[in-house]
């Protein structure tokens, strides 16, 4: 029988040393994916490197520049924060959809991102908000936009020994907001068939100045859809603009048939959610 070690370093450098030291090392923060995969899929690491005792990873700082959140801050803390809910309502609602209430007490953005499921709920919302991750590794630290972290199902661009330390999210400009929705057959405890996140910035007259549209579960990773964003820019999210954005989403979606949905259904839903989510983000931005 294989044995598993457990380490809980209290600084980033020690964690990097442990992670770089062996191939079978895994970062443990919430463990809501890792432990399940170990039990059900027999993916047993050689060592769990618990990062929750590293102060930076549990810190949360909000200022005029934006949010800096440690990678081990649990989902419940994030969406439970009133300022985060006010500034990034879409990101908060996406974070509130991960797993269940019980899971959200442990689950983290970093875990949701590094598990690299194309259907992760927080990832499209993080990308829409322009979030960046700070990655620590044997060569020091680097900053990478969230959309560059996942490269395929279960695969990240993190090099051996690297792990996510923090998320940085820039403070939204005036008249900005975001929204996220996913389609699941049930109401919770389910995996997105399609997810869509939209972040918008309007001018004083209510015209969209900047947009980011991101889809989940329709490609090997969450994808930015610049054509959908372009369809919204210059509009007031009228029906025609929403329709064009939806068509762009359908065109950009490259889903697969699996037990959770078909190609045809996912492409249709990509359009429906893009329209709906853009409208919600627009109404929120107008109200700010």
């Amino acid at each position: 029988m294989e044995s598993v070690r457990y380490e809980a370093p209290n600084n980033v450098e020690a964690a990097v040393r442990l992670l770089a030291g062996e191939n079978g090392a895994k970062v443990l923060s919430g463990g809501t994916d890792l432990i399940v995969q170990m039990r059900l899929m027999n993916r047993v690491p050689t060592v769990f490197v618990d990062v929750k005792r590293i102060p930076r990873l549990s810190a949360l700082a909000l200022d005029a520049k934006g949010l800096r959140s440690g990678a081990a801050v649990p989902a419940a803390t994030l969406y439970g924060n009133e300022t985060i809910r006010k500034l990034w309502p879409g990101l908060a609602e996406a974070t509130d959809l991960i797993g269940s209430s019980q899971i959200q007490g442990r689950a983290t953005w970093a875990g949701n991102l590094c598990n690299a499921s194309p259907a992760a709920d927080s990832v499209p919302a993080l990308i829409a908000c322009g979030a960046t991750v700070v990655i620590a590794g044997p060569k020091g630290e680097r900053r990478v936009p969230v959309e560059q972290v996942n490269v395929g199902p279960g695969k990240t661009s993190l090099a051996p020994g690297e792990f996510i330390v923090e998320f940085e999210i820039p403070a939204p400009a005036a008249h900005s907001s975001d929204a996220y929705q996913r389609l699941i057959p049930r109401s919770e405890m389910d995996i997105a068939v399609v997810g869509a996140a939209v972040a918008l910035t309007l001018d004083a007259g209510g015209v969209v100045k900047a947009a980011r549209v991101v889809l989940g579960a329709v490609a090997p990773t969450a994808i930015l859809v610049p054509d959908a964003a372009a369809a919204l820019v210059g509009s007031k999210c009228e029906d025609a603009a929403l329709e064009r954005a939806g068509q762009a989403a359908t065109a950009a979606a490259k889903p697969i048939d699996d037990r959770r949905g078909t190609v045809a259904y996912r492409k249709k839903i990509a359009a429906v959610l893009t329209r709906r989510v853009a409208k919600i983000a627009y109404d929120r931005a107008r109200a700010r």
Binding site: P185, R186, S187, E188, M189, D190, I191, R259, R260
Partner: peptide, 28 residues
């Protein structure tokens, strides 16, 4: 509305768990 046995072409059940064999949860 939700519960269904899904088999692949070789007859292997694809959803042998409550995640994808969708029994209603309270909020449903």
């Amino acid at each position: 509305l939700w519960e269904e046995y899904l088999f692949d072409k070789d007859g292997k059940m694809e959803n042998p768990g409550f995640l994808d064999y969708r029994m209603p949860v309270a909020s449903d």
